[in-house]
């Protein structure tokens, strides 16, 4: 295989171009007036949004000193995988020690681990922020789930929708409940959604949706459940690498 070295070189080059993390470009223009010791997340993690769009809420982090007091004027840089755009990518903390950035998700659906770093006195401090980007199928699933499933499967009520969760004798699993749902195979999930709870000897409170939702819609809901599950879903059975 004489092609191997060439191919490896191509792959390496592409890996360098695509896989690397782009550091904040404009950080040099900012002059930090203080340095903190720790950085903590204030808000904006665990959001979901369609690929390539700006998340509804900004990511807010706070820089603290050794005593846990907020530090004003410390430099915070945001990093993420290729395709993620921060506005701004680097910023000084405000008077309450907080740094706020708007996040535009990358073009690939799935989980994104972003990080916010601050130089710190001794060594760099950083905090990780997890966000979820929904591809076409997952987004369709989220829309279908929002209409047909969430009233019972989402224990949280909102102004638009009162949750029915508390009213059910047998409690449904929240879609984020990876501990339970990750153990179900796609086929089992399909059976429960299409034929109702009794199909797997579960509660009849879960009605069948096989004649209401198209197979594509049901698959989309499963794809959505898989992407939002916590802990993350790892399909069982297939080993990709030798």
């Amino acid at each position: 295989m004489t092609r191997r070295p060439v191919a490896c070189a191509v792959l390496l080059l592409m890996g360098a171009g695509i896989g690397c993390k782009h550091p904040a470009a404009s950080s040099s223009a900012l002059k930090p007036t203080a340095t903190g010791a720790a950085i903590v997340l204030s808000s904006g993690d665990k959001q979901t949004g369609p690929t390539g769009t700006v998340l509804a809420n900004p990511v807010v982090v706070q820089v603290n000193d050794d005593q846990g007091a907020a530090v004003t004027g410390a430099l915070v840089e945001f990093h993420g995988p290729a395709g993620v755009v921060f506005d701004p990518a680097a910023i000084l903390t405000d008077s309450s020690g907080q740094a706020t950035t708007n996040v535009r998700l990358g073009t690939i659906g799935g989980r994104y681990t972003l990080s916010a770093t601050t130089p710190g006195k001794a060594h760099e401090a950083s905090v990780q922020v997890g966000e979820i980007a929904l591809g076409y199928q997952q987004q369709l699933g989220s829309i279908v789930a929002d209409k047909y499933c969430s009233r019972c499967h989402d224990p949280e009520s909102s102004a638009e929708r009162v949750s029915n969760y508390d009213n059910l004798a047998v409690k449904p699993h929240a879609f984020t409940d990876g501990g339970t749902l990750n153990k179900m195979s796609d086929a089992d999930m399909l059976a429960v959604i299409q034929h109702g709870g009794p199909a797997l000897s579960r509660s009849a409170l879960m009605p069948p949706y096989g004649k209401t939702l198209s197979p594509a819609d049901v698959q989309a809901v499963i794809a959505y459940i898989r992407v939002v599950s916590d802990p993350p879903y790892k399909p069982a059975g297939t080993v990709y690498e030798k």
Partner: peptide
Amino acid sequence: HGYQNGYLSLIHDRS
């Protein structure tokens, strides 16, 4: 052609 070779070596080690 380079990308096709890259693809071949990507799948080379997969089960």
